[in-house]
């Protein structure tokens, strides 16, 4: 049966490409098309905000306070507010996040406890940001009586970004090769000495990259700070951590929806949006570049 079947085929022509591959190219093109939509959206929004915001951006815009019911002037206190919120948040979250990662990668023994911890982190990562806002309101603003403040906002953001910091740090720690650990232990170092002197320094670039990406995430968040820290307007800069602050994302939201001069403040809205995007995407890009460099450079 096979004999005739095979010989019936013309050997030369059969190897030429033919229209049979139409379905193939159709679906692959479809994938290419649909798969590019996300990138197109990013560039469309980037282009649009940059186009409308670029002429607002100036030295004065980023160094002056708002004037005339925010229809004029700059956004200096707004930028400062976002920077303070973000910095305080990272100062709080990094020690906890990295220690948790050390716990997970070096100390935790397989078992129910580890499962519960992992599941908690996984669940925490899926909690909506507005729910973190409610939590911050109930705990930091009300129960601990911090009021709407820089401190309450930063702590809320810290809890929100904690799962992200844990997972990036854990990844960095796990990338440290086992042979490094063995070498250190073989020299008579204790476990903690090995972690401090060998594992942490080796993982540090990865941990810091995670911190940069986490910072980018935090600085763009609105919902967690709406009821915990963000003010529509403050006179001057905050003098203590117990004062509310202005923040870039909240500023955009308020000016675009709730202000009394929505149309008049449009240029300021674009300028603020562009500032926020440059800040967030800039840090994000920095993180991505650092990470890919580390992956390439990794000699071990």
């Amino acid at each position: 049966m096979t004999e005739t079947f095979r010989d019936a085929r013309a050997p030369i022509d059969a190897l030429r490409k033919r229209g049979r591959n139409l379905t193939e190219s159709f679906f692959l093109s479809l994938i290419r098309l649909l798969g590019s939509v996300g990138a197109l959206i990013l560039f469309a929004i980037l282009f649009f905000v940059a186009y409308n915001g670029i002429h607002i951006l100036s030295w004065e815009f980023i160094t002056q306070p708002p004037l005339d019911a925010m229809t004029k002037g700059g956004i200096f206190p707004v930028i400062v507010g976002t920077v303070l919120l973000t910095m305080l948040c990272m100062i709080v979250v990094m020690p906890i996040g990295v220690t948790t990662a050390i716990f997970l990668s070096e100390y935790a023994k397989p078992g129910l406890l580890l499962k519960i911890v992992m599941m908690s982190i996984y669940t925490l990562a899926g909690v909506p940001s507005v729910v973190f806002g409610l939590f911050g309101l109930a705990v930091f603003v009300v129960t601990l009586n911090f009021g709407m403040s820089l401190l309450a906002g930063s702590l809320t953001l810290a809890i929100m970004v904690l799962p992200y910091i844990i997972s990036t740090s854990e990844e960095a720690l796990k990338a440290v090769p086992y042979s490094f650990k063995e070498a250190s232990l073989a020299c008579g170092a204790t476990k903690w000495q090995t972690i401090r002197k060998v594992i942490l320094p080796t993982a540090l670039p990865g941990i810091l990259t995670g911190a940069i990406l986490g910072t980018a995430k935090v600085s763009g968040e609105t919902a967690p700070i709406m009821f915990t820290a963000a003010a529509f307007f403050t006179t001057g800069l905050p003098r203590s951590v117990f004062e509310p602050v202005m923040a870039l994302p909240y500023h955009i939201y308020v000016l675009a929806t709730a202000g009394t001069h929505i149309e008049e403040t449009r240029p300021i809205q674009y300028g603020t949006a562009l500032t926020l995007i440059v800040l967030v995407l800039g840090m994000n890009l920095l993180g991505i570049i650092l990470r890919s460099r580390q992956r390439k450079k990794r000699a071990w």
């Binding site: 590019s36 996300g38 990013l42 763009g220 949006a273 967030v280 995407l281 994000n284």
Partner: peptide, 19 residues
Amino acid sequence: LKPVIEMLASFPSVVLGFF
């Protein structure tokens, strides 16, 4: 494409709402 999509993930949602 990979980093571009990652940047889209970090895009502040308030800017998406604004857009």
